[in-house]
Structure formats: structure tokens, C-alpha cells
Computed example of a mutant assay.
Amino acid sequence: MEITRIAIHQVDLPLKEGAYSWSTQSFAAFDSTVLIIETDSGLTGVGEICPLGPSYLPAYAEGARVGLAQIAQGLIGEDPLQIGRINQTMDALLKGHPYVKSAIDMACWDLLGKATGQPVYNLLGGLLQEEVTLFKVISRQDPAAMAGKLADYQQQGFRQFQMKVGADAGEDIERILAVSEVLQAGNVLAADANTGWKQHEAIRVVKAVRDVDIYIEQPCLSYEECLAVRRHTDHPFILDECMDDPRVLMRGFQDSAMDVVNLKVSRVGGLTRARQFRDLCATLGITMTIEDTWGGEIATAAIAHLAHSTPQGFHFQSSAFHEYHSVQIADGGPVIKDGYMVASSAPGLGVTPDIAVLGKPVAVIGR
């Protein structure tokens, strides 16, 4: 099998609730890139990369499309089923920029599943979870509004939640106290600052909410700052944005810096490296949130397949991003019910992009 053509599409993903706010940022829609790989066999593979705005991580939507166009020409004629070779070739063509490579890697896994007649979760380790536990994001608003959202989401069947904080420490203390008051017994709540607090602010917050049953997620920008906060609290601790490399993961394990790691597929370069990261976490006994920066049905399908193939004891929760959007970019996305999602059992990722929604590609590379 050979890659004959790569098409790059741009699509906006508007938010159903009008905006998504975290730390000091807010967006009404996210800019996503969908990649379609065509082969001489007639099979196609699909991938997606959707950075969470241009200043959240060192990744941005326009950069994804430029980077993909840069890499794509060097992949024409390559066998997409040789995924290790594809990743080596991408690294030779473009140093760094793992988020760019994620969409191609994802599309190759989709092709491998279709070529072998297997859902991707079978290829990533097998179906170890029949359904994937979801968490619901509570976008940053005033305390009463956030508490109201939590109450609504609990009625929808969700039991795990991530509330967005990281703006003003004093207001965030009020937010945490207000939201935690309506959390039902047995449900799980995390306060995610998305790197937004300074170290002294984070320490102030964790001391003020010391009696609240809550996880603290990525309070500060650097690993070192987060570690200092960790040493000032008994709250279970999640590291996210700074966990971008297995070497940092090993350091965190040795320092007892976290209880849970947030594994984002595109941040580490795609499903190939996410599987490596996941398996190392499981070997070390570290539980994971498995998700991505953002995306539609395609990115969510990749999340679901990776989570399905993760031992249940090491899977904390995942995101179903496509439920937040007013636009559907593909058929076959994971089915959501009662706080869980289930990926398609069809070969590959099980999703079919809607070309009418995606429109004409912004770039086409190939024969």
C-alpha cells in the first residue's frame, strides 16, 4: 500500500454553550484541521488536530496546516501501514512540532485498522474497557453559574467533573467552594488551573480549600512550581501541560509529583507515542486521564480507542469533545450515554468525515 494523496481541511467548531473559558482565555469556536490520506488500495485514513487556541500550548491551528503541508510531500509513496517508519520519516522532515505529526499518525492507525479489518482499539492492546468513563468540563464563570452547571450535568448522568479555574486566586477559592457544595456523594471533582496560577497563588488556594474533596490539576506553568505546590497539599494531584515527554513522566514518578497524569494524544505526537506513554504509566502504576487538546468526532474517536485499550484500573477519565459542538464533522463518533462513551467497533477509527461540512481542502499534496 502506498500514500498517493493527502488532503488538508480546515473547519471551525462552534461551542453549543456560546463560549469555553479557562484560566484567562475564552473562545466561542475552535479551529480544527482534518487530514485525509488516500492510498493506491482505495482505502483512506483520517486524522484531526485541534489546538486549544494559539497560546495554550506551543501549538496553533495555522501552524498545524503549514507543518502538514511541509511533511506531506515527503510521505507520498510511503506505506502508511509501516507506522514506525512513517514516524521516523516525519521526524526527519520536521524537527519537533509533535502536534503536527499527530494527525498523520492518527490517519495511519485508521488505515491500519481498515486494512486488517480491526477497530483501532484491538491494535492498541485490545478491548480492555467496554465503556469509557467521561468527565464533564465546567467552563469558568461566576461561582453560582458554575455550581448550576454542575447540578445540570449531574442530572444528565455524569459523575466526574473538571471545573476551570486559574484566573484570580480569591475568586477561584469561591468557585471551588460553591461548586463543591452541590457535588453529590461519590462524584469526582477536579479544579484545573491550566497553568494559570503563580506558585504563591496556588499554595494560597490549596490551603483555603484543604477540607474540600477535590483534585488539583496543573496549578502552575512549570513542573518545578507544581512540585512545590504538591508539597504543600494533601489533595490528589494531576499533572497535565508539563507532561509532554516520557523523561518528564519518569522524573515525576521519581519525585512523587502527581497521582494522575493527563495524557493528550496530540501533545506527544499521535497514537503511536501516546500508546508508549500510556504503557509506561501503567508499568509505573500511574493512573491517566486520556484525552487531547480539542477536536470533533475524529479526535474523540482516537481518544476513545486509546482509552478502550487501557486497563481500567489505570484509566481515570476521558473527554468527548464532539458533544460540546454545534457542528458534526464526521459520522460514527463515539456514542455518549450516562457519563460514558463507546467507540465504534467498525474497522479503523470507525468515523467517516462529512465532506459537505469540511468543504474543499485548503491544500492537496500528491499525485
Rank of each mutant, 00 (worst) to 15 (best):
G113K: 10
G84T: 12
D244H: 08
S344G: 09
A147V: 06
K360T: 05
T233L: 01
L134K: 03
A301S: 15
S26C: 12
N122H: 14
D331M: 09
G285L: 10
Q312M: 10
V362A: 14
H200T: 06
T287R: 15
K198T: 05
D331I: 10
Q155R: 15
A61G: 15
D12L: 13
Q160I: 04
L280K: 15
H322P: 05
L43F: 15
G359E: 05
T293D: 02
V342F: 07
D211A: 13
G125E: 00
A190Q: 12
D338G: 12
E130R: 08
G77W: 01
I365M: 09
H322G: 08
S41A: 13
D213M: 07
L111W: 03
Y153G: 01
L13C: 14
P14D: 08
D168W: 02
L15D: 00
E201G: 10
A190I: 07
H9E: 05
F161T: 01
A7E: 15
A144F: 11
I49L: 09
G84F: 06
P58V: 02
A301G: 05
G166D: 02
D142C: 11
G285I: 03
M250F: 14
V137C: 09
V229E: 02
P311Q: 04
V46W: 01
V165F: 05
G339T: 00
Y215F: 15
A330F: 11
A29N: 11
Y223Q: 01
A169F: 03
V261Y: 00
T33G: 08
T33E: 01
G285H: 07
S102D: 01
V46Q: 00
G186F: 03
G84Q: 10
D168L: 11
G63R: 00
G313N: 09
S102M: 02
M341I: 08
M243K: 00
Q276S: 13
V351F: 06
G339Q: 01
A193K: 10
P80Q: 01
R85E: 05
F158T: 00
G339N: 04
G270L: 03
A185Y: 04
G74Q: 01
D110L: 07
L52G: 02
T44N: 11
S23K: 10
T33P: 15
Y20L: 13
W109V: 06
L239R: 00
E297V: 09
C281G: 13
Y20E: 02
A19M: 10
N262K: 08
H235S: 03
I216S: 06
R367D: 12
G332D: 11
I329L: 11
I298R: 01
A59I: 06
G77E: 00
E2D: 08
A193E: 11
D279V: 11
D12N: 12
Y324L: 14
T116K: 10
A92T: 06
T133H: 04
K95Q: 12
E131C: 08
G113I: 05
Q88L: 12
A145Q: 14
D234L: 08
T293F: 02
